[in-house]
Write a protein that binds this DNA or RNA. Structure first.
Lengths: 186, 186
DNA sequence: GTCTATAACCAGATAGAC
DNA sequence: GTCTATCTGGTTATAGAC
């Protein structure tokens, strides 16, 4: 294999295991074994397990928005675009076995004082909020129950709530309901 | 101290640490130290750390509903009662330093195959859903945007989403917004 | 029932050969 | 840069004295 591919392979394996098993339940040993590399090679590319976690979060955010923006780009109508956001997460959760949001999951696993991790997670959530808000602005001014500001908040909270709820019940019912509600609100 | 108080003290300390630090980051050592008991005493009252976790979840659910029902009992009007649910969680999150929902947090820390834990968590969530649904039924039949069924789902998802979001941002803004939205929907 | 001591194991991280 | 061997300190759980 290529030398530079090692780092990618570590991240690939770590990403999978951190999501499937959890960060704390995934040991360095398992990562080096499944990535088929030597112990010290990992520490050559990452300073520590925490450093690997932060790299994972950063890469995960990039991939998440790439896929999300690609998915919702199919629709040009603002309302359709917003509803596609629910479909995106539904499809994603289906594919990934209803493990919930990977960013939220990590935030529940680290110490509350771990500002680096919480900064990374809130960065992703902020970016999603901005994405939603920008589309809501393009909506025609019908007489809605909620103002544009509150509507954007509602959509965000419904998405997050449904992602969590789906991960508990291990099915897509929550996200389906959330989309139904969103459809009425928009 | 009383003999029978030992079990209570273990649960008390474990509850605090599981929430503050996380389940996986809390070792048996720290629990026995802070509860000021012997190692084997813990294993006399609980078969394993997992057993202690399940006892924690059970007790936590009982306490949660006791406090919640007590809090919302102040209001007799159905709409006020539903909105009080948001106040309850806001107050609770304020007191507990925005660590998020304790049940969700645990579900993010254990293996996805740990059915005992996921059953305990979904039990608590189902009970909350039933509580909400029962009150929604008592609402007068105004011409609302959402049917009673969808309204109950919306309130549940808003609560869960706001709890999560608040735990990321470490403030009560999410729950305040959620209550504002709920106020319009009901 | 509570205690101390210890077993058996696994974690993250590093040293030094190549 | 990658390897193997090792260090140190952590974990859960148990044995046996009192």
């Amino acid at each position: 294999m290529k030398k530079s591919a090692v780092r990618e392979r570590i991240l690939e394996v770590a990403s999978r295991l951190f999501y499937e098993q959890g960060y704390n339940l995934t040991g360095i040993n398992q990562i080096i074994e499944e990535a088929d590399i030597a112990r010290a090679s990992l520490y050559n590319h990452f300073d520590s397990k925490t450093d690997l976690l932060l790299a994972y979060l950063k890469e995960a955010e990039d991939i998440w928005f790439l896929e999300m923006e690609n998915y919702t780009a199919r629709s040009s109508d603002p309302k359709e675009k917003l509803l596609a956001l629910f479909d995106f997460r539904m499809e994603r959760q289906n594919k990934r076995g209803f493990g919930g949001c990977q960013f939220i999951k990590i935030s529940a696993e680290v110490s509350r004082q771990d500002t680096q991790v919480f900064d990374a997670v809130s960065h992703q959530k902020n970016r999603l909020k901005v994405f939603i808000t920008d589309i809501v602005k393009d909506l025609p001014d019908n007489n809605r129950l909620l103002t544009h500001g509150l509507l954007a908040d509602a959509l965000f909270l419904l998405l997050e709530g449904a992602a969590i709820s789906g991960s508990i019940y291990k099915n897509q019912e929550s996200m389906t309901k959330a989309k139904e509600i969103a459809d009425k609100l928009i």
